[in-house]
Amino acid sequence: MRNNSKGARVAIYTGLFLWLLINLFPVYWMFTFSLKNNEEIYVSNPVGLPQHWLWSNYAKALKLGSIGRYFLNSAFVATVTILITLAVALMATFALTRLIWKQRKALNKFFMLGLTIPIHVSIVPIYVVLSRLGLRNTYLALIIPYSAFSLAMAILVCTGFMNEIPRELDESACIDGCSVWGIFFRIIVPLMKPAVATVGIYTFLQCWNELMFANVFVDSGKFRTLPVGIQQLFGQYTTEWGPIGAALVMASFPTLIIYVFLSKKIQDSFIAGAVKG
């Protein structure tokens, strides 16, 4: 900034502030209308802070929209997906970076195709298989596809981290009589914590926000995830905005609150996912 003229500095800060406001305003507005009644939203106070904080909108969204149920479904699906993705990716990455065999480079490239393959192509075949096995409307109907589509990114991130673990560690462990299993579980896996965090965050957000699979593979309310639940709530409540706002806040604020505390780590996960590719 030092060698910029004053005018240029003012212009830069103005631009940055403007974009900041554009980013914040919709979120602020969502929060405020989640606490208002229609009269305030439509007529007397569309953009100000609520005059009476109507927390009952939240109770309505929870009760009539079953938002609580969808919230837990989403959390469960995301957690299991993360665990499966991590276990499978760590094992595969170990084979791709540590074990010695000829086609490992080629196979790594093969897995990286997963970064470009759109989920669209799996919809019909998976729908057919799930219908045939009677697995539609189960948690597995989402967990398996989500894990598979998270795999390429997870292997990519794990490869980067695993390559940084010095090979001498394996060798000295080997001399001490550690087996391949021992090296994997006692040496490599404990050192992969940063990769685990990165993959976990990234996978969580993918699952938490996914709409297309969730919409098609599950149509029973029992297993419905949050994005689909909210979409349907919207269909039921077209006239009363408050409860919709409350549902939107409940679906997004947990992630945003975590983001406030882990912003650097979350940003790094996205950078690792893209730039190392």
């Binding site: 709409l211 994005p227 909210i230 997004s252 992630t255 912003s263």
Partner: peptide, 14 residues
């Protein structure tokens, strides 16, 4: 930086 990145974390449905 953190505010600019925030919308990425909000579900597209929301």
């Amino acid at each position: 930086l953190s505010v600019y990145f925030m919308p990425v974390l909000i579900s597209t449905v929301v």
